[in-house]
């Protein structure tokens, strides 16, 4: 089984939990994770139907992607705990907690997960948690939140966050720069993954590319997406180029050679290679393999 804290999570696609049609076909577009939403995209009057529909879908459809259910907030709404009662027995891979502000909220949900895991005889850690930071208060507690043992990833929920900031989204993303940096640091410190917020203008593919490139360069592991056409684009941007792969292979080969032959200082193309460069090279190759690239074909292209 892949480690839920390191598995490939380039894309997490939002799927409204009240649409059988969208739930049925959610799996065919190749998203790494599918997030069935029973929170903000579902009207208060539809909460129970969405909850039951998603649970039934998880039980009866073999999804190839990781399955995530975004529940309603466990304390700020009357629905969250009931959501868990119906959803957990259908064994999603992750529960996504929205608007997390304090680690006690994570603990509450984790306790319920633990109970259901024991009841069903599932190994501990069968179901894990991804939390979304959507307020300044949440941001201030993000380090503690990230360190909860059930947490495998942290996400940014920008729409609520900027409302809280009393500003709006801009093309440059300046309003989110601080929060993105902060939750990313917290995630890295806790050795979990970090997912960037959605880009809601599905027509603006240029703006989307710009935003994904930026958050990828900041260090985010992936992007939440709201339309299948965004998936291809994220995967393309998260797949290393032939040249990057070839270069990484060169570094790793030189490193192997140095290890075997007890060489001291190591250089590739006249540049000194040290530990972090080797780690980065390995990451590029891993990402390429995960994206389905035949890396051996790229050897020698640099």
């Amino acid at each position: 089984m892949t480690d839920p804290k390191t598995k490939l999570r380039r894309t997490m696609m939002f799927v409204p939990g009240n649409s059988p049609k969208m739930i049925n076909s959610a799996d065919i577009y190749g998203a790494d994770s599918l997030m069935f939403d029973i929170e903000d995209s579902i009207a208060v009057t539809e909460k129970d139907t969405a909850r039951i529909l998603v649970a039934q879908a998880l039980k009866s459809i073999k999804f190839h992607s990781e399955t995530v259910v975004r529940i309603n907030h466990p304390t700020q709404t009357p629905f969250g705990m009931d959501d868990l009662k119906v959803i957990l027995p259908s064994k999603p891979d992750l529960i996504r907690l929205p608007k997390v502000e304090d680690v006690s909220e994570v603990e509450l949900v984790a306790k319920e997960i633990e109970r259901v895991e024991k009841e069903n005889g599932w190994p501990e850690g069968t179901i894990n948690i991804i939390s979304a930071i959507e307020s300044v208060k949440g941001l201030y507690n993000v380090r503690e939140i990230c360190k909860h043992p059930r947490m495998v990833a942290i996400a940014l929920g920008a729409e609520d966050f900027i409302a809280n900031l009393k500003t709006q989204r801009t093309k440059t993303g300046i309003e989110l720069y601080y929060v993105r940096s902060q939750i990313l640091m917290a995630a890295r410190d806790a050795e979990i993954q970090c997912m960037d917020t959605v880009f809601s203008d599905v027509k603006d593919m240029e703006g989307f590319e710009h935003e994904v490139s930026n958050s990828r360069d900041m260090g985010f592991d992936g992007k939440s997406v709201i339309h299948p056409k965004q998936i291809t684009e994220v995967h393309r941007l998260y797949t290393p180029t032939d040249k990057q792969i070839a270069k990484a292979l060169k570094v790793l080969d030189a490193y192997d050679d140095a290890q075997k032959n007890h060489k001291g200082v190591l250089a590739v193309d006249g540049k000194m290679i040290d530990g972090p460069i080797v780690v980065r090279a390995q990451r590029v190759v891993d990402q390429a393999i995960a994206a389905g690239v035949n890396v051996e074909e790229k050897r020698g292209l640099a």
């Binding site: 076909s25 065919i28 577009y29 339309h227 299948p228 056409k229």
Partner: peptide, 11 residues
């Protein structure tokens, strides 16, 4: 005649 917007058809 416009090209479909259906993600399934596009796939």
């Amino acid at each position: 005649i416009r090209i479909t917007k259906s993600p399934t058809q596009l796939l």
